[in-house]
Design a protein around this nucleic acid. Structure first.
Length: 294
DNA sequence: CGCCCTGTTGGGGA
DNA sequence: ATCCCCAACAGGGC
């Protein structure tokens, strides 16, 4: 019998455990988890249905049930899906029982995680279309694509990378890593990079994702929270959480900033700060002439 | 011991 | 379009 590690969620291993089984009982212990319906109604909608497949969409876990019923589950920061953990963890939010017998628990100390019921394929596709851009490892994720979706955007490139509607699946650690590898400062306006920088950034995003997969000994479709980023990621992630340490490339001390409301680590020599852009003001006629867009 | 800060995320309101 | 704050909890620094 396959075993799931105690404290990790691995879709790649989870899927074979539930596919083809019927969800016999679903107990939602935290009403916050359940969307858009109340827990009782959401469980009723899914109980008795067979699980056709379990997929990953960006950072969502997508459960496909018979009859075009779907559950878009998000683990947020501290969620995990455990295989029949005993004793039951303190922060168990949902209990799932399948037939033939199989039990899972959705555990989430911080209670940010959610389960969204979607009825009908169009509703399901619309849900993701509204929230997720291209996956970095998908065919069309090219430098040109990146340049096009960033065109005209003046917000910081880091915020842009974290925006799931632009690119699906890039998280805070990955964004820092990709920008470091591409030697781009996180505060650079997203739409103002050179063609070469978009190309480098595109490759760096892919590299960062591969580094993460590698560090975890996982596959791209796995969800796995590593126990302590500082431990498992240290060798492959070159800037994140390294404030005070020397940059591996130039020796300059890594500093921590806050960009897009997230802790952001940067080597300000390898990743030069953008020139301060002055707000256009009346009487500021001496400033450089506006460059034509496009 | 208590207080304060931080965080693998995303959404809503300003 | 963008920014700020919030959700709720644990763990670390002081």
């Amino acid at each position: 019998m396959p075993e799931l590690p105690e404290v990790e969620t691995i879709r790649g291993q989870l899927a074979p455990l539930v596919q083809g089984r019927t969800l016999a009982r679903m107990e939602i212990l935290d009403s916050r988890w359940s969307r858009p319906l109340a827990p009782q109604e959401l469980s009723s909608a899914l109980e008795g249905r067979r699980v056709l497949a379990l997929e990953r969409r960006g950072k969502y876990l997508l459960w496909r049930f018979a009859g075009e019923a779907y559950l878009a589950q998000h683990l947020r920061m501290t969620g995990s899906v455990l295989l029949d953990p005993r004793p039951e963890p303190l922060h168990t939010r949902v209990r799932l029982a399948f037939e033939p017998a199989q039990k899972l628990a959705i555990v989430d100390p911080r209670r940010f995680g959610t389960g969204e019921l979607l009825l009908g394929e169009p509703a399901m596709e619309a849900f993701f279309a509204a929230r997720l851009g291209l996956e970095p490892l998908q065919e069309g994720f090219t430098a040109e694509h990146l340049r096009e979706i960033a065109r005209g955007r003046l917000g910081p490139i880091k915020a842009f990378l974290l925006d799931q509607r632009q690119i699906a699946g890039v998280g805070n650690i990955y964004a820092d890593e990709a920008l470091f590898r591409a030697r781009i400062h996180p505060r650079r306006p997203a739409g103002r990079l050179s063609r070469e920088q978009y190309a480098l950034l595109r490759d760096s995003i892919v590299e960062a994702l591969r580094a993460g997969i590698d560090a975890k000994g996982a596959s791209i479709d796995d969800f796995r929270h590593v126990d302590g980023v500082k431990g498992a990621f240290q060798d492959r992630f070159l800037v994140h959480l390294r404030a005070g340490e020397p940059c591996v490339r130039c020796g300059t001390t890594i500093v921590k900033l806050v960009v897009a409301g997230r802790g952001t680590y940067v080597c300000e020599r390898c990743q030069p700060r953008p020139r301060l852009r002055r707000a256009a003001r009346r009487g500021d006629g001496a400033s450089r002439p506006a460059r034509p867009r496009r």
